[in-house]
Design a protein around this nucleic acid. Structure first.
Lengths: 362, 362
DNA sequence: ATGAAAGCGCTAACAC
DNA sequence: GTGTTAGCGCTTTCAT
């Protein structure tokens, strides 16, 4: 069932059907009604492929993420879809699972389907993988790591803003030994977060012991390992700022394992504000980098670029603000050293619990 | 840059280019080499839209999920993409966010893009939403809830298998008061899980107090509420089986709030085995329903249907097995009643902790 | 084995 | 205001 069938049944030309469907105002109301009637009856939907072929516009945007199973991404995918739908765009999502081959394949799939633009939301990448896209003048939008070139947009994240709030919050709670667990320092974004932390610490007049700077992996396992290291220090920190939420979750998990209470014994702050952050126990205080907002900005950057007649020579820049979200994983710095209590806490809590568990009741 | 450009530069006809690219064996090696050379030089990728238009095959499958931000789905989306890529299929993912309008829109988007088949992986739905797809003979695959009609496949989940293992496991641990927190009973799948539980309990000769059957929402909040209710019972259960993992996570969260230890005071078992289940504290014992396997079965069901010349009159059926995954949220039933200890546990643990926190050290 | 040409379903320029 | 027609980039007969 094609436009011809509709035209035949409505006794008009295919051009009139096309005009009607596309809302060209010159169509007589009477004919328009006749056409719409047939369209409804037949359940006719135009073939997007044919449309794209002739118009040269696919109405598809690509979205490349690192891995959809990482809790950071689904919100972005959802946000992107939400807006795309409103604008009648389809979205081609690909997940690279950190594999350059998959990434290259993603790019190829995008080109074959003739996407009008691509949002690249990945942790780290090899820029040359996008050469194909660039040479085809496909608009691209990057988060934080892209070049300033025509047809490219960048969403810059203002890390300092939120991290400064986090550090000031900890300082106000009298924390002085504040550790930072970074992401892999091969990632620009991880470096930027750490730099923001250092600057914020300096601003509040706190010095950072280099022993308190640990390189993590932006994973739960990384957080677990990092806290172990930190607790082995002669003077463990009273607060830990993490480069992302998964790391913070690992820290909290390990704290639990070691019988150290969050936030009483140690305060923990994350970064990203993934949805999971509200669900863990205790709910995580974290720096919010709105995933929905990232999706919105990325989509509009692409849309703006597609609609622009001549590209800006240096591309476009957008800025995303970050801000602290207070929940329950932070508290006043403990009066006595964590180290002191750590040795005894676990044993004692266990003993107390065992006593209770033995069944003796009031 | 089109096939014509390639043809011109290789000094052959567009037909030869087409044949070369599609591996039609009649092409002379010499010409083939010439064509490939130009293709590489130009970075030519065929236009999929044009291909689809003429061949009538879009090489796109649709995937409709309830909401990508629900931790259950990302693994399915990833699994589906992984296989699709291997078969040179593109995938159009849509997330209905539980909105029938969005669902209807999803269907429309699928049809407009001329997908060759659609996998519908949603909790509950209104079947008539798919009438458009059905009338167009688009192959459909459902999880557990679809009709037996031509061009439709169903992946039946063998709930009993895994749930029986779970119940037997609890019985072996001497649990007798076992509660079940179901999903919303408007969902067929939720009802099926509860039914499996009831049957398994009967098999091991345990009776189910109707007070122990709580209807949840397949959400963390549902689990929290359900455990509260359960704990208000004169004789709270010693074990809780949940209809999905998010519910189990809510239960564990509430247990923590109330100072009740998992698994020492209460055993908890989930269902689904979402990735998160390994990450919480303690790691959750749960019934695995492999999301990757669901994706794989769904994709192959669609592929088989597309390749089949004449559809089977009653569609196809596939079965997914489920099985218990032992982790740390289950243990022997406590000797003394939970109720007994519950009244004092929290108070006492708190007191013990406070004593320690006051800084008194060995 | 290769090329010429028809046509997939649609939009847009051009006639009337 | 409406119809006719020329492609969009490709695959696939049908000749040769």
């Amino acid at each position: 069932m094609s436009i011809h069938e509709v035209a035949r049944r409505a006794r008009v030309s295919i051009a009139t059907v096309s005009r009607t469907i596309n809302g060209v105002p010159t169509v007589t109301p009477q004919l328009s009604r006749r056409v719409w009637k047939v369209v409804k009856e037949l359940g006719y939907y135009p073939n997007t492929q044919a449309r794209a072929l002739v118009s040269g516009r696919s109405r598809i945007f690509g979205l490349i993420v690192s891995e959809i199973t990482n809790p950071f991404f689904p919100e972005i995918v959802q946000g992107f879809e939400d807006i795309a739908v409103q604008h009648n765009y389809e979205i081609l999502t690909t997940s690279t699972v950190h594999d350059p081959k998959r990434m290259a394949l993603s790019v190829r799939r995008m080109i074959e389907r003739r996407v009008e633009g691509v949002a690249i939301v990945t942790f780290g990448m090899e820029e040359e993988l996008f050469d194909d896209l660039k040479s085809r003048q496909v608009p691209l939008v990057f988060i934080d790591v892209g070049p300033s070139l025509p047809r490219m947009s960048n969403i810059r994240i203002d890390y300092l803003q939120g991290i400064r709030q986090a550090v000031q919050h900890l300082a106000a709670l009298r924390h002085e030994q504040i550790a930072f667990i970074s992401g892999p320092l091969t990632l620009k974004t991880a470096v930027a977060r750490e730099r923001a932390f250092l600057q914020a610490m300096e601003e509040v007049g706190l010095r950072v012991d280099s022993k308190y700077e640990i390189e993590g992996h932006h994973t739960m396992e990384g957080g677990i390992e990092a806290l172990k290291q930190l607790l082995n220090l002669p003077k463990p920190p009273t607060a830990v700022l993490c480069s992302n939420d998964m790391t913070a979750i690992g820290v909290m998990r390990q704290a639990y394992e070691e019988g150290i209470r969050v936030p009483d014994d140690i305060s923990v702050i994350g970064f990203d504000d993934i949805r999971l952050a509200q669900f863990i126990t205790p709910p995580l205080t974290t720096v919010k980098m709105s995933q929905t907002e990232i999706a919105r900005l990325a989509f509009h950057a692409l849309l703006a670029e597609v609609q622009r007649k001549s590209p800006a020579p240096d591309g476009s820049e957008y800025v995303l603000r970050t801000s602290l979200v207070l929940r329950d994983s932070t508290a006043m710095a403990p009066k006595f050293s964590l180290q002191h209590r750590r040795a005894t806490n676990r044993k004692r809590v266990k003993a107390a619990i065992d006593e209770i568990a033995s069944g003796r009741s009031d």
